[in-house]
């Protein structure tokens, strides 16, 4: 299990990286944390000619609050997000999701940009981005652009990124104080990719749910925004009939697939179970943005 030979360049700027990508197209691959790519290289499932190491480009890492937006640089590690007071304060959903990503050693190296760019629908960050209506910041040869996460993920492992693009940051709108979040997933062993998971945000008020956002992990080719279930819950009290309607709506919202251990039907069922649990948990607390100290 040794990778095929490739050349390697460590770049100091996005422009330099873009120049390599422009020259070699898909014969070059970007590497940052490498937590997914390295395994595929070792297995020879991927054999690029050139690895472009972007991990030390200055300015692509870090978490900044700017007005009502938190910007997370693409090279920020899962661990940094997990430990960030800024994230805990303004984006509690991310703080809830981060510890559920793989294991400590992986979280120390893996980056949010790599995870979102790889776009594994079973990964946590893509669903969080969709639930939080984040914006993906991309730089390409023709300049920069911003793409809503809700349109960024196009199909299985397919995004708005072209082979000559670099994901540089993700912008998250600060979660308002009254809005709570829950991140739940079902994985057979800790740190495994989830069979199914969800990110739920809502503002509960007098027993009613408002501003509901619901995105699923592992329930389709992309992180799935459950629009009909969101509509079924919006402005309502989660009584049994409402929950039943929301669960039924998931049949339209999700397109779960089958894998080695879990059928599509089971995923669909589990998505409904998680919805019930998430709503219950949200009403009994959930995570709220901290009041500013």
């Amino acid at each position: 299990m040794k990778p095929s030979a490739f050349d390697y360049v460590r770049v100091a700027s996005v422009e330099e990286a873009l120049a390599h990508l422009t020259e070699l197209g898909d014969r070059a691959r970007l590497i940052a944390g490498g937590q997914t790519l390295m395994a595929t290289l070792n297995m020879r499932l991927s054999a690029p000619e050139l690895l472009v190491d972007i991990s030390r480009i200055p300015g692509l890492s870090g978490i900044r609050l700017n007005g009502s937006t938190v910007t997370i640089g693409a090279l920020t590690t899962h661990r940094e997000i997990e430990r960030s007071p800024l994230v805990a304060q303004h984006l509690p959903l991310l703080a809830q999701a981060a510890p559920q990503i793989a294991h400590a050693a992986i979280r120390n190296s893996g980056t949010i940009g790599g995870s979102v760019a790889f776009a594994d629908p079973a990964a946590e960050w893509p669903a969080c981005c969709v639930a939080l209506d984040a914006t993906i910041v991309i730089q390409g040869p023709a300049g920069g652009r911003r793409v809503r996460a809700r349109t960024f993920f196009r199909n299985l492992y397919e995004t708005d990124l072209t082979p000559t693009d670099i994901l540089v940051a993700i912008e998250f709108p600060v979660t308002p104080l009254a809005r709570r979040s829950v991140f739940l997933e079902l994985s057979r062993r800790r740190g495994d990719y989830a069979i199914v998971g969800l990110a739920l945000l809502a503002r509960p008020a007098e027993g009613l749910l408002h501003e509901v956002a619901l995105a699923y992990v592992g329930a389709g080719p992309v992180p799935m925004l459950a629009r009909q279930a969101m509509a079924a819950l919006e402005g309502r009290a989660p009584a049994a009939s409402v929950m039943q309607a929301a669960r039924a709506a998931l049949a339209h919202d999700l397109q779960p697939g089958s894998d080695l251990y879990t059928s599509a039907a089971t995923r669909q069922h589990l998505a409904g179970v998680l919805l019930d649990r998430a709503v219950t948990q949200l009403l009994s607390g959930g995570a709220a943005p901290h009041a500013i100290a």
Binding site: M1, Y8, I31, G34, Q35, M38, A39, N42, M43, L51, R79, H103, A104, A105, I106, N108, S109
Partner: peptide
């Protein structure tokens, strides 16, 4: 050699990493 077992865990700049998932 694909990042699952942890037998290759080493420290880089003070933090544990999978040695097989880093060049």
């Amino acid at each position: 050699e694909h990042g699952v077992c942890g037998a290759c865990t080493v420290r880089v700049d003070g933090r544990i990493v999978r040695g097989c998932l880093m060049l």
